[in-house]
């Protein structure tokens, strides 16, 4: 398991990365943490002719509040983001999702942007991004564009990023309010594995406990993570009581298109989506009611 040969270039700025991408096009691949790319290269399932290392680009490591968004640079390490209390207060689902990602060693190296661009349909960060409606800032030599999560995730391991584009930063919407709660849960066979199915939710309730806003997402049950907007919407105005949640998630299968493999059938995945959706909604409700922004699950 040794990678096929490739040329290596280290970019010191996003502009330089973009110009290298423009030069080598589809033969080139950006490498940040490499936690997914390197094993694929070792198995020779990926064989870029050029590897452009973006790990040293300072501008990809910013972490800041900008208006209504929390902004994370694409090359921020997952471990750093998980430890970042300010990020966790702004967008608690990021830390809640990262809890389930890999292990200490992979989080020390893996990046937020890398995980998103990898776009594994069962991965945690893409699910959080899709659920919250994060926006992706893509740069190329000719300029910059921002795409929504729903545009960004196109298929398994495929995003809207063009071969000459570099994901620069991700803008996560920050919910303002007193009573906001979120939760992330998943079923993986071992801790740290990709989820069989993952779910996350964020809700806001008013002083009477009535849901005024909700989002719900499911990962691992379709080609891309799914934000189940219809179900989330149907919960608005309810007290998020168990019966309302159970009724709302009953139809979740119609929004999903899961596959089957050796560890899980499509039917099992739909079932898990229903179970986990109900769990995260309950937990998010509890967290919102507690005034806190959420615990691990």
């Amino acid at each position: 398991m040794k990678a096929a040969i490739f040329e290596y270039a280290r970019a010191d700025s996003v502009a330089q990365a973009c110009s290298l991408l423009a030069e080598y096009g589809a033969d080139a691949k950006l490498i940040a943490g490499g936690q997914s790319l390197v094993p694929m290269m070792a198995m020779r399932l990926a064989r870029p002719a050029w590897l452009i290392d973006v790990n040293r680009i300072a501008e990809l490591k910013s972490s800041r509040r900008d208006g209504a968004d929390w902004v994370t640079g694409a090359a921020l390490r997952q471990a750093d983001v998980e430890r970042d209390g300010e990020a966790a207060r702004a967008v608690p689902l990021i830390r809640q999702g990262l809890y389930w990602v890999g292990h200490v060693q992979t989080k020390n190296r893996g990046t937020v942007g890398g995980s998103l661009v990898q776009a594994d349909p069962a991965a945690e960060l893409p699910l959080v991004a899709q659920t919250l409606g994060a926006r992706f800032v893509l740069r190329r030599t000719a300029g910059e564009r921002t795409v929504s999560a729903s545009e960004f995730f196109q298929a398994p391991m495929m995003t809207a990023t063009e071969p000459d584009e570099c994901l620069a930063e991700v803008r996560w919407p920050v919910w303002q309010g007193e009573r906001i709660g979120s939760a992330f849960d998943e079923l993986s066979i071992r801790h740290g594995d990709y989820a069989i199915v993952a779910a996350c939710a964020q809700v806001e309730v008013d002083s009477a406990g009535r849901c005024v806003r909700a989002v719900l997402g499911i990962g691992g049950a379709a080609a891309v993570p799914v934000s189940v907007e219809a179900i989330a919407r149907s919960l608005q105005g309810t007290q998020l009581e168990d019966a309302a949640i159970d009724a709302a998630v009953e139809s979740i299968g119609q929004y999903l298109d899961p596959g089957s493999d050796v560890h899980a059938t499509a039917e099992y995945r739909v079932h898990l989506a229903r179970v986990l959706a109900a769990r995260v909604l309950r937990q998010a409700r509890a967290n919102a009611a507690g005034g806190g922004r959420g615990s691990r699950a």
């Binding site: 990678a3 290596y8 490499g34 390197v38 590897l51 290392d53 060693q105 992979t106 020390n108 190296r109």
Partner: peptide, 21 residues
């Protein structure tokens, strides 16, 4: 995890990095 090493103070997997990095 058998290949774990400490990179600038934090443990990483050395099979998931190229030496050049």
């Amino acid at each position: 995890g058998a290949c774990s090493v400490i990179l600038d103070g934090d443990p990483v997997r050395s099979c998931l990095m190229f030496a050049v990095q």
